[in-house]
Amino acid sequence: MAEQKIYKKAISVKKTVIWTMLAIGAIAMLTPIIFMFSASFKYSDEIFNLNIIPSEPTLSNYIYLFEETTFFKWLINSFIISTVVTFSVLFFDALIGYTLCKFKFKGRKIVFIAILSTLMIPTEMLVIPWYVLSNNLGLIDSYFGLMFPGLMSGFGVFLMKQFFEGVPDDFLDAARIDGLNEFQIFIEVALPLVMPALSALAIFTFLGNWTAFLWPMIVTTSADLYTIPVGLASFSGEFQTEWEMIMTGAAVASLPTLLVFLLLQRFIIRGVILGGLKG
């Protein structure tokens, strides 16, 4: 009896140590984010102190950011672009994945392999030709120019195809007998069955577009069309490293995704696992 108690005690001591270490690690992970937010509420003469709670908290940096700079416009741009691209990816990738999974026709394999092979091509290789293409088509400095490279993705096609494998053909056949056409079947029967995959794909796509830097930097010319990351980079140059302003910009750039995460945590983590493992 006594021995078991000691054993249990040893376990709980060990657990406490592990827990403490993990908690310290978690705090360390959050430190940059905490300091970022903290600095954004400080006056410029206080930001180089190590205290986290400002002695004299202020919203003046935020007010300045939204009233005197184009930051709000960038926020809107990022939002529009990420949203449109995400919907396009969801629709087309699901449609392609569904077609390649549920239809038997000549050339199916070639199409699938061809789309899959695009996963091997790094964006960096495509940006120069994309730039030339946009230039020739007058897409530089336009929403469409920002969006067109991401409207469909090989990754999403692959992910959706994997998931449609799990949808029984009987369901679809039943719908055919009910007289639905193939497009209706896709929208009304098939799509609702792969909601978890769609949400995973939505998370990845939105996040990827929200944080994208290289292509938006190349294709935008006027400040009115910048996305958040491009704006932030140029903004940091213009403000001559006024750190409290840069931190405020960084905070505003990170806030939307952090808020969404707080609201939909479980959902997002499940999505990441689904997307990560199947994709």
Binding site: A26, M29, T211, A250, A253, S254, T257, L258
Partner: peptide, 29 residues
């Protein structure tokens, strides 16, 4: 770990959701 598992996991996961450009400036500072 069972106690506070979700919270700890969330803390570790949060940086993944940040914008690289934004955080680069934080680290630069």
């Amino acid at each position: 770990i069972k106690f506070g598992h979700g919270l700890l996991r969330a803390c570790y996961f949060v940086p993944f959701l940040t914008t690289a450009v934004a955080m680069a400036w934080v680290w630069r500072w």
